[in-house]
């Protein structure tokens, strides 16, 4: 009988360790996705017995997955919304935010565009349809092709909150993006549209700016890792990983959500084009 009990205990322990340790599921933002994927690669190389899967279905879907318990960590490029918190609390989930990196939203135009700098107000007017021609901004006489991310994306949400929302006489005013704006499904697609369209303007995550497009100076500040980390650049945001409660110390979830604090984690964040939260 004693042997039998011990055997059952051993089998149970083996079973729990296998199921608890083998899998780590991440879901959410396409912006945070690359960071999560690089972290996952690094983490799996350190812990070969752990399998980390990263899905990129958008911030909204990530929050949903965490609430439904189908992922361990939700990647969000925005903070959780009120109604998501409510839904989480109702489902018995307590979302805890971990800021893993900072992201600047860069305004990009075609390299041939002579316009170099804009103010946040000008960007707002362009997207609201009040400025419709590049000649109003010191550029050529060409209608502006306004490219936005789809309303499903965290980048849209952040752009909308940081640029389209402003205060007039102390009151919050939310400007509508003009109906003629084109919507694209990813940062890459937004960049692609700007690469191939001389009259286009789009907003993308800082990590997506490359030589094929030109990023504009906003309020006289260039979108660089330094200006974003120090908060001088106007259109910047933190990137989050959300867990259900603070992860148990020593668990894989805990180890994973603290990678960004290690020198290696900061290196990874920088390599992908985002800005580390900690200076080292």
């Amino acid at each position: 009988m004693k042997w039998f009990t011990m055997a059952v205990c051993a089998a149970l322990m083996a079973a729990t360790t296998v199921t608890a340790e083998e899998k780590l599921v991440l879901d959410g933002s396409t912006t945070v996705g690359p960071i999560a994927k690089a972290f996952a690669e690094y983490y799996m190389s350190m812990n070969p017995d752990v399998n980390v899967t990263v899905s990129e279905s958008g911030s909204g879907n990530g929050a949903k997955s965490l609430i439904h318990g189908t992922c361990d960590i939700a990647n969000l490029s925005r903070f959780m919304k009120d109604n998501e918190f409510t839904a989480a609390a109702e489902a018995g989930v307590m979302p805890v935010a971990h800021v893993v990196a900072m992201d600047g939203i860069a305004m990009v135009v075609h390299p041939s565009n002579p316009v170099k700098e804009l103010t946040v107000a000008q960007v707002r007017d362009i997207y609201a349809g009040k400025i419709t021609n590049w000649s109003d901004l010191g550029g050529p006489d060409r209608d502006i092709v306004v490219v936005s991310r789809d309303t499903n994306s965290g980048t849209y949400e952040t752009f909308y909150n940081l640029v389209m929302t402003h205060k007039v006489d102390g009151e919050k005013v939310k400007e509508k993006i003009q109906s003629g704006a084109e919507y694209v499904g990813s940062n890459g697609a937004a960049r692609q549209r700007v690469q191939s369209t001389p009259a286009a303007i789009a907003y993308v995550g800082l990590g997506f700016v490359d030589r094929t497009v030109k990023d504009l100076t906003i309020e006289g500040v260039d979108a660089t890792p330094e200006s974003v980390a120090s908060g001088r650049y106007a259109i910047a945001r933190p990137l989050f990983m959300f867990t259900n409660g603070y992860p148990k110390l020593g668990s894989h979830v805990h180890a994973f959500t603290t990678i960004h604090l290690s020198p290696k984690g900061q290196e990874i964040v920088e390599e992908i084009g985002f800005v580390p939260v900690t200076k080292y």
């Binding site: 279905s57 949903k64 998501e84 499903n152």
Partner: peptide
Amino acid sequence: EPVRTLTATIAGDMGEADHVT
């Protein structure tokens, strides 16, 4: 001019548009 269709709207908005939100 650019336009938006029913199918693209359904595909593009499905992610955020759950009971939750």
